[in-house]
Design a protein around this nucleic acid. Sequence first.
DNA 1: TACAAATATATGTACATACATTTAATGTTG
DNA 2: CAACATTAAATGTATGTACATATATTTGTA
Lengths: 166, 166
Amino acid sequence: MYVHIFVASFGKSTPPIMKIEDEIKQPTFKDEYQKAHINLIYTTGWIQLRQAAAFREFDVTLPQYNILRILRGQHPKPATVNLLIERMLDKTSNASRIVDKLVAKNYATRTVCPSNRRAVDIHITEAGLELLHNMESVVSHQNTGLHNLTPEEAAQLSDLLDKIRD
Amino acid sequence: MYVHIFVASFGKSTPPIMKIEDEIKQPTFKDEYQKAHINLIYTTGWIQLRQAAAFREFDVTLPQYNILRILRGQHPKPATVNLLIERMLDKTSNASRIVDKLVAKNYATRTVCPSNRRAVDIHITEAGLELLHNMESVVSHQNTGLHNLTPEEAAQLSDLLDKIRD
DNA sequence: TACAAATATATGTACATACATTTAATGTTG
DNA sequence: CAACATTAAATGTATGTACATATATTTGTA
């Protein structure tokens, strides 16, 4: 339900490809750089809104989900806040407070690390593992639009993005 | 100063291109789709942090700057909140409260629209115009990484992104 | 004209981002 | 070993996002 509202607000897809200049009402751009820049930000927002909508029925946000996946990757070993930050896409976000939310929902536990009492050991719980399992089918079938590309095009996209950060 | 900390946290660029699998410590991906997906989110975050850092010295955030530019585009005609939402990249964000901040900083004024008292007329102030003018050189010289691409590659990137949203 | 629907904006809430600062524990070194 | 630096995490603050809901005004219509 939310999904449809959102997608509509981003401009509904119609048979011919919706170019960025049609999506936002800006007919021209200074150059291809400005156009690609705006398109990047717009398209990434578009993808993230769809993802967040898919997660809403599970009452988990995208950052919470991402941290749960890292915790599962470590399981049964513990993670620390530092390890989470290292592995997170957005390294400036606040892992500590996202873990708070997961602990409150009983998807993770937090205990003082015995060998280094400054650090905390964070474990995913059975409930957390079960949640990820239940989300699996929804998440894998969620169409983030990437599959509109061929594998070759996806690889090309990655190469272009790597160049940007060079 | 902030810039350097940030850029370093995202992985400092070194002569050979830093691929996404090196940036976040994940050696392999399920497929090219997952890789491109993560790369998109990571790279867009990378770009936006650089932009935000460049704006910080002017004490304006990215959304505030974007709205100021729309206001200048309308000047001397007024904008309404609705018009701002239409033109904004992130259409679900809260234009009303961003305008609050601009009014508080004296970069914009807000008056009840005489012909439709539900709406508000929002104008950029002289101080707002001057701010944009002062930011111009910094913003245009800020390297968002897009210029690491050729114009052809930038156009190719836009095409791939358009396909994703199709 | 009264009353419902639509419109334009504002406000409330939970969550997250982007920092700076604080607290506690551990390492280092003179 | 005491003093200082470093490290790990938590907390504080301002901002913004993503909604749901509220308020005021205008429009449409029975």
